[in-house]
């Protein structure tokens, strides 16, 4: 049960992270590969302010959000100058710079050692113990609800229309009086603020952060979520997040599969494998699952799972996934 609550909290954090990414990639077709790095910055800002300055929850949250919003300025500057392929590389480079700073600026970030001992939030006006995960879950989903309300607006109002239009034919959008540059910058700002929020929440939950939690793997995960849920689809992103967070979880329990089979068949496992045809099918599958659930292999296995799913989804939707951009 505890573990289930943990999963729900993780889903909540990723919902904020993925939906904000969905705004820039799904609606605006802007390949901001630095999104996860901004998330990392949010986590580090909260971690440092909470542990070194003892700042309270709202203070850390707001600082994370605002500082990450500032990063949007850099992203905007990159995007003004650059077209699609250059922009993606630019954001990749930017995220690598942030990674390098997180790892090497030891006096600030403690490098690869990370920052431990981040306390759970405390409210002076409310006597709630957030070390109890159920309470933290409520806090998480309050933030998710606020995030989703605001993002829902930006997915359905004039801003969304302009963002979608400029992703298709930028000049035609300008010809209708829209300032596409401002629109793009705003989308980075909004997405980065929410990435910062997610990062802050993550720091408060896991209570320890280090650079390895924010690698390219996270980026692939978020990208897969958005692609699986259909880029630009608000509820599709929700589905994608839930689905992809839960999908590899059964791998943790595959050690119990032989036991389950023994219970099912009513005979010891070696006998089951000896059954002609059925046994020959079951044995390799179970062996593979047992191999895959070894702790040292679990991490890369999940990574591979996401990459394969990403590829399969992209392959089957390749015609319609990203519409071709037009220009004069």
């Amino acid at each position: 049960m505890e573990y289930f609550i943990h999963l729900i909290i993780i889903i909540g954090i990723y919902l904020i992270l993925a939906q904000s990414f969905n705004l820039t990639l799904g609606l605006g077709l802007l390949f901001n590969l630095a999104h996860v790095s901004v998330y990392a910055v949010g986590a580090y800002v909260t971690a440092l302010l909470a542990t070194e300055l003892g700042m309270g929850f709202f203070g850390c949250l707001v600082c994370s959000v605002l500082i990450c919003g500032l990063f949007a300025i850099i992203l905007g500057a990159i995007s003004i100058k650059l077209k699609e392929d250059y922009f993606a590389i630019g954001t990749l480079a930017f995220s690598s710079v942030i990674s390098a700073l997180l790892i090497n600026w030891k006096s600030l970030t403690h490098g690869v050692l990370g920052i431990p001992g981040i306390p759970r939030p405390e409210f002076s006006f409310l006597k709630v113990d957030f070390y109890d995960n159920i309470n933290f879950l409520v806090l998480t989903y309050v933030l998710v609800a606020i995030t989703f309300f605001m993002l829902y607006l930006f997915f359905n109002n004039f801003f969304a229309r302009t963002l979608r239009a400029q992703s298709e034919f930028r000049q035609a959008t300008k010809a209708l009086g829209k300032n596409t540059r401002l629109t793009r910058n705003m989308s980075f700002f909004i997405a980065s603020c929410f990435a910062g929020l997610a990062g802050s929440l993550y720091a408060y939950y896991i209570n320890y952060i280090d650079p390895s939690s924010f690698s390219l793997t996270e980026m692939i995960f978020v990208l897969t979520v958005v692609v699986v849920g259909k880029p630009g689809s608000f509820w599709g992103c929700v589905f994608g997040t839930v689905f992809l967070v839960l999908l590899p979880e059964p791998l943790r329990f595959t050690r119990d599969v032989p036991l389950a089979l023994e219970w099912l068949f009513g005979m010891p496992y070696p006998q089951i494998s000896a059954i002609p045809v059925l046994g020959w099918l079951i044995t390799p599958v179970v062996s593979f699952l047992l191999y895959a659930s070894r702790p040292s292999v679990l991490g890369p296995m999940r990574q591979m799972l996401y990459a394969v799913i990403l590829f399969i989804v992209v392959y089957f939707r390749r015609e319609a996934l990203f519409p071709v951009q037009r220009r004069v």
């Binding site: 392929d85 992209v314 390749r318 990203f322």
Partner: peptide, 9 residues
Amino acid sequence: LSFFLPFVT
């Protein structure tokens, strides 16, 4: 197809 696809794949 669209530029973004080989990127992602």
